[in-house]
Computed example of a mutant assay.
Amino acid sequence: MNPRRHFLQKLAAAAIAFPLLPAEAHLSIEKQATETNDGPPLRVAIMGLGSYGTRVAEAMKDCKRARLTGVISGTPSKITSWQSKYNIPAKNCYNYENFDAIKDNPDIDAVYVITPNGLHHDQVIRVAKAGKHVICEKPMAVNAKEGQEMVDACKKANVKLLVGYRMHFEPKTLEIVRMRKDGELGKILFFQGLSGFTIGDPTQWRLNKQLAGGGAMMDIGIYSINGARYMIGEEPVWITAQETKTNPQKFKPGVDETIQFEMGFPGGAVASCLSTYNMNNLDRFFVNGDKGFGELQPATGYGPIKGKTNKGELTQPHTTHQTIQMDEMAAIILDGKQPIVPVDGEEGVRDLKIIDAIYQAVKTGKKVELK
């Protein structure tokens, strides 16, 4: 391991070793792993047992195709808690030093990596080398180079790499995508994406450059980048961006507070977006065509998503995003299902290339052309 990787692991307390917890009599995943009417389940281990990992685990209780069967963590007390809460046997519990042993565990088909961004690269590659499919939380990596290395490693290992783009399965979002694809919005002219909130604890990993890879852009701005792409249906060809920083004590060098950015698309559409860690009430997508429009507000929160189009209010029912996501990802991995909006590693790299270009535009003050 090179010094940077070692530093990141230490910084995240990710190399804490502990003995496997004793097996508890009668604790089995047999009930969880039984076949459903839709086919065999995807047996998933969650890596990183923080707040979002917990949200995913709770949502998976209602999944039809995905089952939580293992955990990977650097905190022994969390493993103990999850064992009893989710009926996970000790043989399916790992730490960050020994999780390569999942290679020999038939109870685990895939690992969902939900750790700080700066750790994704090495952890995903290790999971791939262990022969397991990977779901990685977004952003997939801290830059496009690392993201591409992750894609290449998973292809070499013949495992799938998916990214936690939960909005790609959200019904109201998909209805606007459908309208755009069917020509109901006409020629797309404009997109606006507002993504932001006021971040709290200044000591959290999201404000640490080494662990987060940046600031608000990596965490929340990526929603507007991704949303512009699937709402417009094209890839941007140029980018401009400007950064505003009002609190350099909280937002250290390399950790962006607020960035306004614009993207131009080959069909002539323009996207105007805002990413910030210093303003609340910013969660809105608006796409405008010469025949109609679509609006979501809130657009990317945990729900319920609300929206309307030129035809009226969107009324698709709300279901927990992570429940839909994990069932759909199980179908992608097990059945080869093709999602309406991609969630593969290549999709993750596309967003990372745009983030790289945004940071370059901020640094140079110039328009950045994208190939």
Score class of each variant (00 low, 15 high):
Arg5Trp: 13
His6Ala: 15
His6Tyr: 13
Leu8Met: 11
Leu11Ile: 12
Ala13Gln: 14
Ile16Ala: 11
Ala25Trp: 05
Ile29Asp: 05
Glu35Gly: 12
Thr36Glu: 10
Pro41Lys: 01
Arg43Leu: 15
Val44Met: 10
Val44Glu: 01
Tyr52Gln: 13
Ala57Asp: 00
Glu58Lys: 12
Met60Thr: 04
Arg65Phe: 00
Ile72Asn: 01
Ser84Ala: 13
Tyr86Thr: 00
Ile88Gln: 03
Lys91His: 14
Tyr94Ser: 04
Tyr96Gln: 12
Glu97Asp: 14
Glu97Ser: 12
Ala101Trp: 03
Asn105Gly: 10
Asp107Thr: 03
Tyr112Val: 05
Ile114Leu: 14
Asp122His: 11
Asp122Cys: 03
Val124Trp: 08
Ile125His: 10
Arg126Glu: 09
Arg126Tyr: 10
Lys129Gly: 06
Ala130Gln: 00
Glu137His: 13
Pro139Ile: 09
Met140Ser: 07
Val142Met: 09
Asn143Gln: 07
Gln148Asp: 08
Ala153Gln: 11
Lys156Asn: 13
Val159Met: 08
Glu170His: 02
Pro171Gln: 10
Lys172Ser: 00
Thr173Arg: 02
Leu174Met: 12
Met179Thr: 07
Asp182Pro: 02
Glu184Ala: 12
Gly186Met: 08
Lys187Cys: 07
Phe191Leu: 01
Gly193Val: 08
Gly193Ile: 01
Gly193Met: 04
Pro202Glu: 01
Gln204Asn: 15
Gln204His: 13
Arg206Glu: 04
Ala216Phe: 00
Asp219Cys: 15
Ala228Ser: 15
Gly233Asn: 10
Val237Tyr: 07
Glu243His: 00
Asn247Asp: 14
Lys250Ala: 03
Lys252Val: 08
Lys252Leu: 08
Val255Leu: 07
Phe265Trp: 05
Gly267Pro: 04
Leu274Lys: 02
Leu282Tyr: 02
Leu282Met: 09
Asn288Gly: 11
Lys291Thr: 10
Leu296Met: 14
Leu296Tyr: 06
Ile305Tyr: 02
Gly307Arg: 01
Gly307Pro: 08
Lys308Pro: 06
Asn310Met: 04
Lys311His: 11
Lys311Ile: 04
Lys311Asn: 12
Leu314His: 09
Leu314Asp: 03
Thr319Ile: 15
His321Tyr: 09
Thr323Arg: 05
Gln325Lys: 14
Glu328Asp: 09
Asp335Ile: 02
Glu346Met: 08
Leu352Ile: 10
Lys353His: 15
Ile358Tyr: 02
Tyr359Lys: 04
Val362Ile: 03
Gly365Ala: 05
Gly365Thr: 03
Glu369Ala: 14
Lys371Asp: 15
